[in-house]
Amino acid sequence: MDRRSKRPIMQAATAGVAAALAFVYGKAAAQVVGNVGAVTPASLGRPPGEKARNLVLGARIIANELIHTSDAGTTNITFLDRTTLSVGRNSTLIIDKYVYDPESGRGVMTATMAQGVMRFIGGQISHTSGVRVLTPVATIGVRGGMMTVQVGPGGVTVMSHYGHIDVANAANHQLLLRSGFTVHVTGSHDWIADPTQTSLQALNQNYRFLSGGGHHHHYDKELNDFAAGHYGLANTPLANDPDSMPGLDTIGTVNLGQSFVTNRAQQQQWNAAQANLSSHTPPPSPPPPSPPPPPPATGGNGNGNGSGNGSGSGGDNGDGGCRGDRCR
């Protein structure tokens, strides 16, 4: 099925989700689930049973509130459990269900996204019970994670940033266990292909959708680098990469090398003392005979013993040299 033929299906699915949203929001009770933490103009909220309103900074978000942004609007919602949703331009979503018990840290969160771009940063609920995001073509389960979801006419794209994310539709499901990977779902009955690495281009494009693009000059006084520095922002450096640093392993290598030299030196000391003793006193009784040579290496050692066998021969030659010395 090509993309053009899928578009009507996608539109129908989107309309269906929107109708479901309208049905749900009309039935729910008013329950505050979070607040608007940042907003640019032309972002609307529509609490259940009420008229649409312009979302403003600090506005309370009600369970089942429909959130819609225009092509210039973005909004950021902080939830009671520390979950953060950044809603990009031209986006529509509803918080279907949000229950959170701060005492136990457990709760339930379900959202439906009809169109647009959303960045989800999981809070306490996603770390305990998990969060579900419904889209026209797939259901996304998030556990302890962060992701960006893009819903458009071509399907749904899910970028994993952290945690476990399960993307499922009627055909199959794909688990995103690593950050930096993307799953794309073209239709609710289309096979979901294996995750692929997220391209930086696609990531940057989503950032553009999520950015309001505006600079709020009236906040410059409070929001500047001096203030950020005052609060220690960016003061904590990253830990050094141990693979590129010396450590116990390099210390071990130095000491191993020294032990090899020591062994050779101690053998030479004994050889010299024995030669010295032999030249002054009758030779002592000879040492016991050497045990038989070792059995050949087993096949289980495989190719790894290639060099080992080679060096084993070297060792045998060395022993031969020892016998030769004694004969002399």
């Binding site: 062994n263 050779r264 101690q266 053998q267 030479q268 004994w270 050889n271 024995q274 040492p287 070792p294 290496a297 050692n301 013993n305 080992g308 060096s311 084993g312 021969s313 070297g314 060792g315 045998d316 030659n317 060395g318 022993d319 040299g321 020892c322 010395d325 004694r326």
Partner: peptide, 15 residues
């Protein structure tokens, strides 16, 4: 590991 040690002397005395 299999070790092959070459430490010349009449008798091997080291570890």
């Amino acid at each position: 590991r299999h070790l092959s040690v070459n430490n010349p002397g009449p008798v091997a005395i080291t570890a």
